[in-house]
């Protein structure tokens, strides 16, 4: 069964007809040619498909495209402006926060969303005092980024990149 939906993807308004079974991830990758979000597991277990959905980081593999009609999607590609990388992207480059690059767009969207969450004062599992605004130390970064697996093992560099971008 098909349904017509409109999405705003990386600033562009796109209207398309999708099978109701199509996930947001597959709609982006296979229907719209937006391959920046990656499919690593297709079950919300790796984070490679993370995009900013209406401003918040979300796994695009576990939500149907049809349920996101009228939503705003920003991918890692859309974070860069006029060929200029986003500060988080620049920090990943500076700190070699990746190797194969497959988890990277998801890591970066996740990091951008996560930094906003910290700015909004959201606590994490490792935040000692739930009443105080969290301080973004390495332990906080590691915990908050744990939904993004990296098999090349770039975590230590990802943490330095995010620490640097947050400063």
């Amino acid at each position: 069964m098909d349904a017509e939906i409109t999405l705003r993807v990386d600033g562009q308004r796109r209207t398309l007809s999708v099978d109701t079974r199509t996930t947001l991830l597959d709609a982006l990758r296979e229907r719209m040619g937006v391959t920046s979000p990656k499919k690593g597991c297709d079950h919300g277990q790796c984070g490679a498909c993370t995009v900013l959905l209406d401003g918040r980081r979300a796994t695009s593999c576990l939500t149907f495209a049809v349920a996101n009609d009228d939503s705003e999607v920003v991918t890692a590609e859309g974070l860069a402006e006029d060929e200029r990388p986003h500060p988080v992207q620049q920090a990943f480059l500076d700190n070699d926060g990746f190797q194969c690059g497959y988890c990277t767009p998801g890591q970066i969207c996740s990091a951008v969303g996560m930094l906003d969450e910290v700015k909004a004062g959201w606590p994490s599992h490792v935040t000692e005092d739930l009443d105080e605004p969290p301080e973004l130390d390495d332990e906080e970064i590691r915990e908050r980024m744990s939904g993004n697996l990296c098999r090349c093992g770039a975590y230590a560099n990802i943490v330095s990149a995010i620490r640097e971008a947050a400063e």
């Binding site: 984070g47 993370t50 980081r57 996560m114 969450e117 599992h125 739930l130 009443d131 939904g147």
Partner: peptide
């Protein structure tokens, strides 16, 4: 502030991008 056990349990579950959904 009033139900820290609940906040902690939520934060111990899944990942940031899953908790947003």
């Amino acid at each position: 502030q009033r139900y820290p056990v609940l906040a902690q349990a939520l934060l111990a579950g899944a990942s940031g991008q899953l908790r947003n959904l």
